[in-house]
Structures are given as C-alpha cells and as structure tokens.
Design a protein around this nucleic acid. Structure first.
Lengths: 185, 185
DNA sequence: CGTTGCTATGCAACAAGGTGCATAGCAGGA
DNA sequence: TCCTGCTATGCACCTTGTTGCATAGCAACG
C-alpha cells in the first residue's frame, strides 16, 4: 500500500495537519494519488501509533486548533525502504474505455456528450498544470547547486502535462470515431 | 462500481467461463481494467443471482467441464443504464510519481534502475499492443457497413498505444533528470 | 506410478477504499 | 439571533480488492 508513503512525501515537503493534507490531495499530490480526508485521518492515526510521524498541537486564532504532523525517524526509514524496493507498474482503471467498448452494444452516439465532458475535464486540468508550471518553474534555473526537490517535482508535473495532452488527443480520436457512426446510423 | 460492467462488455463480445474471463483480464480488457479470478468468480456469482447473466454447463473432453456465462436481458439493461449515466474521470494511482518526489529526500540515483524497469514494462506492452493492432486492424477497412464493435475496440487500442508512448517518453525525461544529479552527487 | 503443469472453480480472512454522518470552533451576513 | 460556510477531526458501516489456500480433472513426461 502506498497512501502512507504519499503522506510521508507530502509531510517531508512540508509538515501539516490532516485537513491540509486532504487539501493537497485535492490538488498537486491528488493528481497522481487520491485520498479522502477520512482515509487520511485514519492512516495518520496509524502512522502516529507506529511512530512514523510526530504530532504537535497548534493553537490557532480565528479558527479551530489543529494537529500538525511531521515525519519522524522511523517514517523516514520506512519511506527509504519502500523507495529501494521494486514496485510493479500500477494497474489502471479507465471506465471510459469500458464504456467505449460497451457502446458497440448500445447507442454509440449517446456516448458523445460523455466523452466531451471528459475532454473538458482534461482540458481544465491541463490549464491548471500549465499555470502551476509557469508559476513554480517558469524562471530559468538559478545558478548554484541543483535543487533536487524542485527538479523532481517539475518532472512529475511534466508527466501530468504529457498525460493530459495525450488524453485530449485521444478523446478527439474517440469523438471522430463516434462521429463516423452518426450519419449512417 | 464497474467490474460488473467490464464483465458484461466482455461477455457481450464473446460468452465464456470465469476462467476465460480471468485470462481476458490478463490481456486485452486487463490493460484498462484489472481483476483477479477470485474477484471475477465472486462477481459472476452475484450477477447470476441477480439475473444479469445466464449459465450453461459445458462438458469438455481432455479438461474439466466449465460454466459458460452469457449476458441476459437484465444485464444488458444494467449495462445500458450505466452507459447513459455520467461517470467521473477515474482517479489515478501512480506510485512511481510518488517515488520520484520522495527520492528528493533519499538517494535520487537509486531510483534509476526502478525507472528503467518501468520503462521496459511499458516498452513490452507497447510492442504487444502494436502486434495486436497489426494482427486485428492491419487490413484496410472493408467496404460495406461500418463494424462499430471493431472500430470501437480499435480506438481503445489506439488509446493504449498513445498511453504507452507517452509513458516511455516521460520516463526518458525522468531518467535524464535523474542523470542530472548523478555526477555532482 | 509420481510429478509437474494447465484448466477450472471456489472459500476465508484480511486490507483498503468509499459513503454517510456527527461534532465543534469561529466569522460574517441577513 | 440564526443561518451559512469554512476550518478541523473523527466514527461506523459497507463495498471492493488482495492474499493465501483448497480442490479437482486431465495430459504429458520420466
């Protein structure tokens, strides 16, 4: 399982509360690893009892207090062990692909609006990525030592951008294919 | 949930046993929807008791008998209903991306072999897809009515090919980025 | 005859993920 | 004052998914 590991990475990049982690999982991290706040709180509790993270009560004014988590020694070691062990490429779940093949036994044209919805979602996400890339990585690399954290975040973001572009191009292909059935239909 | 739907699509394309379905989920269907045989048997049993599929005992010689499943009326209706209802784009789980960002807090160079392993897996899968495309869709389209089932299977396969090519290109980008840390290391 | 290996089906236990709901502090506006 | 809305944490339940194991027919090989 890797939700623990995703949380460890996120906390190493910046300590934070369960709530803050949940929000990160709605944006940056969440684009390649999803989790709801219930899941996060549950796993954080386990990680705390395993000594992977430290907790600090942070009083806040104008809003409820929070528990700020940061990575402890054993957590760092667990992450390191996971990084050094091979992982199989993730299994994918593309229900749109199932729908497309299933459409052959129903009405292919009825899928057009669904595919367009997905295309829009991917376009929005691409815009979001590109904005983030311009904001965080727009400047030419500064002189001096290479910042590994920054470089690695950047290459992951480039992966997200490549993925969204690929999906948009493919969904256009799907739409063209679906359109091919329409007239004769 | 969509394992039921993936099974319905697969059975509509061709009726078969749980064992045969499990093997299809190791190849074609499995590239965009994974399932183990235990899961498939369990779900098939439920689908049978819900009247979604019909079963036929098929005696075989030279090997154990099997139960051949085919889609029944209610199953077709359930699939149709699912096809017509909107679905959110699937959540992704790319643990390699988590590892890459995590490598900033460990040894980035140690990830190189892992990334190369993944690259090889994607290359193999691309080869497999291309062979399938040449075998099944290599001929120019025959005259006559458009075969929706064939066209839709083809466009899904093109999606798989686009995905693998994108991944290979991105993994090369990752490797180049990781190599950038090595000398100074 | 015993072993290996593929076909074929399945159970039990557990881990992980998702849905719905509950609680509570505090700010700002109607 | 009440309501809405955001921050913040959490429980209970249920569905899915994974792992390990068990059974059994039959073929091929040594």
């Amino acid at each position: 399982m890797a939700l623990e590991h995703a949380i460890l990475v996120s906390l190493l990049e910046k300590p934070g509360s369960g709530y803050e982690l949940a929000r990160r999982f709605e944006r940056s991290i969440g684009y390649f690893w999803t989790a709801t706040h219930q899941q996060i709180y549950r796993v954080l509790k386990r990680m705390e009892s395993d000594g992977w993270v430290d907790v600090r009560e942070v009083p806040q004014y104008g809003r409820p207090d929070k528990k700020e988590y940061s990575v402890a020694g054993p957590g760092r070691e667990a992450l390191s062990a996971w990084l050094h062990e091979p992982t199989e490429p993730d299994s994918v779940r593309h229900d749109l692909a199932v729908k497309i093949r299933g459409a052959a036994f129903d009405d292919p044209a009825a899928l057009i609006s669904e595919v367009e919805r997905h295309r829009q979602a991917h376009t929005d996400r691409l815009e979001h990525y590109l904005a983030g890339a311009a904001r965080d990585f727009g400047d030419p690399p500064a002189d001096g030592p290479i910042d590994a954290e920054r470089e690695l975040q950047h290459v992951v973001l480039r992966g997200g951008i490549a993925y969204e572009r690929m999906m948009i191009a493919w969904l256009d292909d799907v739409l063209a294919t679906l359109a091919g059935f329409a007239p004769g239909h």
